[in-house]
Computed example of a mutant assay.
Amino acid sequence: MPMTASKSNIGGSRGEPLRSASAIVSSTESGQHLLKIDGYSRTKDVPTGSHIKSRSFRVGGHSWHILYYPNGLNSTCSDCISIFLKLDHNVPEGVRAQYTFSLLDHGGKPVPRYTFGSEHTFRDEDWGFPRFIRRDELERSEHLLKDDRFTIRCDLTVTKEIQTMDIDTAAIPQPPVVVVPPSDLHRHLGGLLVTGEGADVTFEVDTRTFAAHRCVLMARSPVFHAELSLSSLTTTNDGAAVAVQIEDMEAQDFEAFLHYIYTDSLPEMKGSEAAAMMLPDLVAAANRYKMERLRLVCEDKLSGFVNVTTVAVILAFAVEHHCLGLKEVCLKFLEDPANLREVIKTDGLEHLSKSCPSVLKDMITKLAAAQ
């Protein structure tokens, strides 16, 4: 009797391979603890090298507490307050954690000058900052010490134990049969701007000429829609549009403006100085041609230039051009007493008093109400 070979169905149904999956999971957990020192002057009786321990708090599955040294950790920092973080129990393999101690002002906001952070693998030791703040600096500051009390905030992020777990293969998304690439409309429209193919309107800016497409401009800006409509635009005998004169922009700014119109993005700007000079002009263009998104894009980028030397000028600009978001960024920057002191040194408030006195008055009123 002849023998026949039977088919072996190794794997899943219909010959499909068996599928399984697992994941290696490394996660973190963050927490925050406020340590309020009420009756600071009385804690100064604690000797140098001795501490007062906070109540325990849990983050990342572990218990922690803060060590407060009113007269410093040792004789080398006896003129300072020392702050340390300690794990409540010994973990031989260690617990990796990032921690930040911040001295809070009366409004509950961290003071940048007295905000310190670090990262450490904790076992049975404590880690922190021996010279967190000098006692005389704390006692002189009305913004930090009030009614003989102040507050320190500890922000803690703990790396949890790495785990390996099974994954239900049914929950794993399968790669699509048809892969749709991201939109490249901006690339095609940008190509039209570069080549000038099919252009039916030109702009003369300074000594340069830019070819563009009327339908694109009209679709992007209601102002261009009105100015470039066929009924209002004069044409030459051969049907080509007469060049439009742009008087209130420089050529490089108008070039960037056209780039945004065609691609919905700003061109790359070489160096922060170039960006800082061009962005205000683009805000003005966005307002002139009623392009709200362009104005917001520029506002967002200008927010990154706010510092003690620029905040007064940028705030005055934001008020003049109705950039509410940028104005709010500047005001929040000035709410920090440390920043405000530095701005005063640069004569920034004098600039504000001349350019936008109403804003300065509102800011002073707001600061006074926060005290």
Rank of each mutant, 00 (worst) to 15 (best):
M1Q: 11
K7S: 07
S8I: 13
S8T: 13
S8Q: 12
R14Y: 02
R19H: 10
V25P: 03
T28H: 10
L35Y: 04
P47L: 10
S54I: 13
R58S: 15
G61E: 04
G61A: 04
P70A: 07
L73H: 14
T76F: 15
C77D: 15
F84E: 08
L85N: 02
L85P: 01
L87R: 11
D88N: 07
P92E: 04
E93R: 04
R96C: 07
H106I: 15
G107I: 03
S118M: 13
T121Y: 14
D126S: 09
R131Q: 10
R134I: 15
L144R: 06
D147M: 10
D148S: 05
D148Y: 05
L156G: 01
L156V: 00
K160D: 06
I162V: 06
P176I: 00
V177P: 08
D184H: 15
H186A: 08
G190Y: 15
V194R: 13
T195A: 05
A199Y: 08
F203W: 04
D206Y: 02
A219E: 06
H225N: 12
H225T: 14
E227T: 08
E227S: 08
S231W: 13
T234C: 15
N237G: 11
Q245H: 10
Q252G: 00
E255T: 08
E255G: 03
F257R: 03
Y260W: 07
I261V: 12
D264F: 05
G271H: 03
A276E: 12
R288W: 06
R288F: 05
K290V: 07
M291R: 14
M291L: 15
L294P: 00
V297S: 09
E320Y: 06
H322R: 03
E328H: 13
V329M: 05
D336G: 02
D336P: 03
N339P: 03
R341K: 02
E342V: 01
T346K: 14
K366Y: 05
A368H: 08
A369L: 14
